[in-house]
Amino acid sequence: MPLLTATEVTYTYPDGRHALQGVNLKIYPGEKVGLLGLNGAGKSTLLLCLAGVLWPRGEITVQGVSLSRQTRRQIGPKVGLLFQDPNDQLFMTTVFEDVAFGPQNLGLPLNQVEERVSQALAMVGAADFTQRFTHHLSFGEKKRVALATILAMEPDLLLLDEPTSNLDPKRRRELLDIIAQRPQAMLIATHDLAMAQAVCSRIIILEQGLVVADGSTDLLNDESLLQKHELI
């Protein structure tokens, strides 16, 4: 059974821009999917729709449950969205509080919250960050902690919006290793073809709000296809 199914997902912004024009896709458990496309192709909009932030036409189901305003609270913890700008994601004052925010809202007792926080921080190599202020972290550290805030919710699907953008090569490699090690299914919106090659098992190309290619990472070796969609 697919983990996530999107059927004819269409979204138009209030200013009339047609961001998504009937997207169909399925993601299976454990699958890492690279979402490629130019700026404005609708990648971020698609992620926001799948996370239940924007409400498109069409149907989105997660583990067989249709995503709606009634089911969002139930589905929410299963889908984690990583924003492009980690400053949007880290809103509490200390790293501990920020990573604990989600588990606390799930209503877990304190010892479980602490356990989840330390596990999530250990996963991203930030185990000793707990008492640091979020606004004093470097950009790369913020990115990793932002990922930890989502991992602490123990989601089944991660939606990552350009996770490697603005990172130096070393931090990029570290983040790639972290992402590759996670067993969860992922949909990764990116311009970083090398990352898609290294981490993903499947590639989806989005153009003007439509899926124009969907297949294995072999697509990345098809130069004429990439040129046609202006990805190189």
Binding site: L48, A51, G52, V53, R73, G76, P77, G80, L81, F83, D85, D88, Q89, F91, M92, E97, A100, F101, G102, Q104, N105, L106, T149, I150, M153
Partner: peptide
Amino acid sequence: RVYVAMQLRGFQGYLP
């Protein structure tokens, strides 16, 4: 955007 991030992690109007 911050509010969305909070909602996605189950924010119900109260800081823990």
